[in-house]
């Protein structure tokens, strides 16, 4: 049968276009507008061309923030991914304790970001915080508002506390989907615990693990609220990550042009990395689904 071409069908996507336009495209275009113009308020704009982009690309301040950002994301991924896998491997597989552990593990994920920040801000205080006070009592000179290392450790430990559960839960789901026969075959083949992990669990988990890494990368790369509440980006600029720096620039100093150029580049970096992840993931899926997965 001949398929009839009916271009009026395009009208059906109109509602989506309108919603996306208002929620994403138009606000983004405002940012684009700011990034190419200079403004002093009063809705007066002066064409600036690529000046802001040029300034931002060569800005030491941005480079430093980007460096801190990459370091932060790298550290939390290096901790949360192995730790999440380790936790998932050791979670009970069924019964009451499995449900119990699942609930407990989900709790940090349900807490609003600024509450997480507040919790750790208080927790780390040496006067009233349990952590800070204990460390001080043990003789450690711990002060996250004054010491760069202490501030970093606090922010990283907070992120690990907040998000390792996500990695663990995703890996747990991946592990649960492995048919029992694989473990039985490994026993029969006399595979070591490491071999079981390396050749059965890790390959079967790789799909969810990639999603976990992608989510954790994106979230950590855009992190704002929690470190802002705990350290305010300090001491000095020690924990000023990209988002914090961006807000300082846009809202604090009202440098809308540079901030707009900055946010566009920031957006493109995240888009690019996510696209790379997506491509890798779909390629892996394709090679895995050459044959229908049995069981």
């Amino acid at each position: 049968m001949e398929k009839t071409q009916n271009n009026r069908a395009w009208f059906l996507v109109l509602p989506v276009l309108v919603i996306v336009a208002f929620s994403a495209v138009i606000p983004l275009m405002t940012v684009v507008n700011y990034s190419f113009n200079d403004t002093f308020g009063n809705n007066e704009f002066f064409w600036a061309g690529l000046e802001w982009f040029d300034e931002m690309v060569h800005s030491d301040r941005l480079h430093a923030a980007l460096g801190r950002q990459i370091l932060f994301s790298a550290i939390i991924l290096a901790i949360e991914v192995p730790l999440g896998i380790f936790v998932a491997l050791n979670m009970p597989k069924k019964g009451f304790w499995s449900s119990f552990v699942l609930v407990v593990m989900s709790l940090p994920l349900l807490i609003p970001f600024n509450v997480v920040g507040t919790i750790w801000q208080i927790f780390g205080r040496t006067d009233i915080g349990l952590l800070g006070h204990t460390l001080a009592a043990l003789g450690f000179d711990y002060n996250y508002t004054a010491d760069v290392l202490d501030a970093w450790v606090t922010v990283i430990v907070m992120d690990v506390w907040h998000w390792t559960s996500l990695v663990a839960l995703l890996c747990y789901a991946g592990l649960q989907s492995i048919p029992q026969a694989y473990y039985q075959a490994a026993k029969i083949d006399q595979a070591s615990r490491w071999a079981v992990f390396r050749y059965i669990e890790l390959p079967k988990m790789s799909g969810v693990l990639l999603i976990a890494v992608l989510l954790r990368f994106m979230d950590s790369f855009m992190i704002y609220t929690e470190p802002f509440v705990v350290t305010g980006g300090g001491p000095g600029n020690a924990t000023t990550f990209l988002s914090i720096d961006l807000v300082k620039m846009a809202v604090g100093q009202f440098d809308l042009g540079p901030a707009a150029a900055f946010s566009l580049m920031y957006f493109l970096v995240i888009l690019l990395v996510s696209w790379v992840f997506y491509t890798v993931m779909t390629n892996m899926d394709r090679s895995a689904s050459d044959i229908p997965e049995e069981l």
Partner: peptide
Amino acid sequence: QVFQFPVVYDT
């Protein structure tokens, strides 16, 4: 032991 469904080490 050989199982009902193929068990191979994919990687």
